[in-house]
Write a protein that binds this DNA or RNA. Sequence first.
DNA 1: TGGCCGAGACTTTTT
DNA 2: GTCTCGGCCA
Length: 707
Amino acid sequence: MSQDILSGLLSGLNDKQLQAVTLPQVSALILAGAGSGKTRVLTTRIAWLIQTGAVSPNGILGVTFTNKAAREMLTRLSAMLPINTRGMWVGTFHGLCNRFLRTHHREARLPATFQILDTADQLSAIKRVMKLMNVDDEKYPPRQVQSYINGAKDEGLRATSMDAYDKHSQTLRDIFDEYDKQCQREGVADFAELLLRCFETLAREQTLRAHYQERFRYILVDEFQDTNRLQYQWLKLLAGSQNSIFAVGDDDQSIYSFRGARVGNMQDFQVDFQVQEVVKLEQNYRSHSNILDAANAIIAHNRSRLGKNLWTAEGGGEPVRLYEAYTDTDEASFIVDEVKALHNEGIEFQQIALLYRSNAQSRILEHALFSAGIPYRVYGGLRFFERAEIKHALAYLRLVTNPDDDTSMLRIINFPTRGIGTRSLEQLQETARSMNSSLWQAALTQQGKIGAFVALIKDMQDQCNGLPLPEMMDVVTQTSGLRQHYAAEKEGEDRLANLDELVTAAVTFIKERDENDLTDFLTFASLEAGEHQADPGRDALQLMTVHAAKGLEFHTVFISGLEEGLCPHENSMSETNGLEEERRLIYVAVTRARRRLYLSHAQSRMLHGQVRYNIPSRFLDEIPETLLKRLNARPVAKNNEPAWVESARASSAPAPAWKIGQGVHHDKFGAGVVQAYEGGADARVQVNFKHAGIKWLALEYAKLTAT
DNA sequence: TGGCCGAGACTTTTT
DNA sequence: GTCTCGGCCA
């Protein structure tokens, strides 16, 4: 019986995958290329460990970066094995640290109901600290202060260990210090704090550390190339001297260094954990080889690599299409026309993605799509729990559990307006400061409007006591006056609908987790901000940045704006290894495509309200010409046809007919035999090369000679 | 308190 | 081009 499960688990794995899954208890680095079955290996490894009796589900720690990835792992796992995954520690770094901190809040020196600050909350908390400290926000832009603080925490540093060699860095350090004190006072933790606090607690509390080290015999990490210094230290601490870490990652897909991700962790890991063998998963199950060859050729230009080459058992497939547009609008209309054609051929819109380097590029594409009536969906806007009305409602709820949360208090003390103006607020803040207490404590001493607000929150606390979550949502949105406020607003319907949706979210939360704890729900809202404004169910084209596309795949991918300055982005050039990261970005983008890939650039484009003339991205030059099919714009379009149609037609005229079975020679691929032939606008031949394998070659460009 | 206007920014953002 | 923020006025 269990033998059956075991062989079922392992069947269908290729040699490398099998090797990775069945490694003995050693720390291992799995270099998993794009589309190489990484998630499958990771989950099968866990299932295999459990099924062979190496470890109980309790002894496994599985870490990912996104909630989606964590969910995916759990879902697959429960499909593989008849186990209850509920008690398993599989989750995101933040989710797991949160779990730890809730359980051991005393040792971590946090209130049991501590709240989590998201990025926006953190920024306003920083602004508050700076105001209190009388720091000039022209000299110290709050956003920069924020990235200073987060950058430090990501490295595992506190204010006390920050260098301060001049006035400026001293001030930054002081703000950092004050900010942390404020968070502590208010019982809140930002994202980075979750990790740092968990790390520090484990480092300090010997008993706790021993307990978890004893427990987590097998630690598995997804997207290891994206770990920052602190996350790596955290893993090391948990691993201790006897546990093993199974790290899966791809250095070529490291695109988050601007957020503290440190590819160097992969090299360090090999040394620190005496990794004997790096298992490389290079067989790609996603794309045709023309696409992979293009990706390989591009990434080969990077110097700092662990080294890896993707290959596929499938054929060459279609050539990579390259379009040079005159303007950004021309580029957009080209894409629209191609998308229409593809859709007519039966490709679903949702199987087509338009990728770009920066969000600013989406507008013009959206405009063209909208005019053409093509349904599309843009990823990356505000998420559900980030919407203003939702954050307002949540702020009331946060005060209900933890009235000392000043950030939430300030958000809603006068929203909807109840006559508490800037002046009275300043007085209240002054009082709080002199009492060295939270705003709430100060407010308790007040009469008048502030007193009425206190009474309002107390009333909510009473009403919510013992209620199911969805009803709490109702109580709060009613009692606070939020509903009335939005009902009276001209365009308030959407916001009201979102408030209703909040109730639904609470219902779903209870159904899925079988718990009714407000703090848990609020944590969920912070840690899992919800879908990026989705309109699912409808077949729509997918628009997103390259970053957002990581981990996804599509039948057809358009990568637009491949121009110097945009991609590689000009701002990246001043950063160390900036160019290499930009190249990895292109690599990620290219490897999203299964069957068809379009690359495009425009000679001129409107950027920041100015027309800019860009030269084609250097990355385009790195793709071998033999893999490309150029669809160039023509200055004049006849018959109202898009310019590129004519161009394609014009190039179709002379096509030397190759016969199947004919021996040929190619400068790069060497000797081969023609296997298939296609005529028409883009005549091409399929050649089976002795050494390079089967490839489709565009006759227009490939220099083939008969042998 | 809210609305309007001008200045200035503007790469990417798993949590 | 377009969004956000801060200041100023009704």
